[in-house]
Design a binder for these strands. Structure first.
Lengths: 123, 123
DNA sequence: TCAATAGTTCGCAATTCCTGAACTACCGAA
DNA sequence: TTCGGTAGTTCAGGAATTGCGAACTATTGA
């Protein structure tokens, strides 16, 4: 198993942060990470949404978050310990994460209205 | 030609904003839009970077920005008039756009270090 | 050593993205 | 009205990315 890559604090890039958090699933994972394991997140998704996310997909999501510099993953015994790198990201891009998290938390939009008819007839 | 889709102010979604601005090219377009036409943006990219962006790609970028609710595009004679919807987005997601724009403008990262060795051997 | 648990990696299908070519829309001149 | 030029959109295909089941790796406890 290859060692997990974590970008250095100064290598964190705005586009990686935005890309990582542009996926609502990953944004949700990130907000739930107060030191949660992958399995706990997985269980949470299974119960809240009734759509259980496959663990391979979840692993990929964690990788994207990790390589964007948003979380740090360390093995602790048999499971993985994920911690937020909020402070580091905040130091590099002040105000960015709070603004994004607020934007997501304020979504009162109807839940996933199936593309809401946009891109009508779209490719 | 299909009429251009613009989401209503309250239909703007955080994930669309983040996805649209996760692309440095689009972020750059957005910051340059003080009422610029597609052709002007295109010319700007040709001169600044020496990599001219094909107009079809540019058109797609504009579409993503438009459908995310970030810009408004209106035909004015033979060319397209793009204006920022900054205030509307700001009203819906306070602080989001300023934080993102600041994050991009503060990038002092070495220009495109060719993936910086990350994802070593990565898929 | 074996079984169980947690997560990663592989491989392929599905989706999305990029871009040259063709097309549409508008304008001005003949 | 027709032609020619300019500006931008749409189409089609290949490239790149993503999603996910299956196989694999790592660690612990019996």
């Amino acid at each position: 198993m290859r060692p997990l890559f974590h970008p250095g604090k100064d290598d964190i890039r705005a586009e990686d942060i935005l890309h990582a958090l542009a996926d609502p699933v990953r944004a949700s994972i990130f907000t739930q990470i107060a030191s949660a394991s992958c399995a706990q997140i997985c269980a949470a998704f299974s119960s809240v949404n009734n759509k259980p996310i496959p663990k391979s997909s979840l692993s990929q999501h964690f990788r994207v978050l990790r390589e964007a510099g948003l979380i740090r993953s360390e093995r602790q015994g048999v499971e993985m310990h994920n911690t937020s790198r909020f402070e580091e990201v905040e130091a590099r891009f002040p105000g960015l994460l709070p603004a994004i998290l607020v934007a997501y938390s304020s979504r009162k939009d109807a839940p996933a209205k199936a593309a809401r008819g946009r891109r009508a007839g779209g490719r």
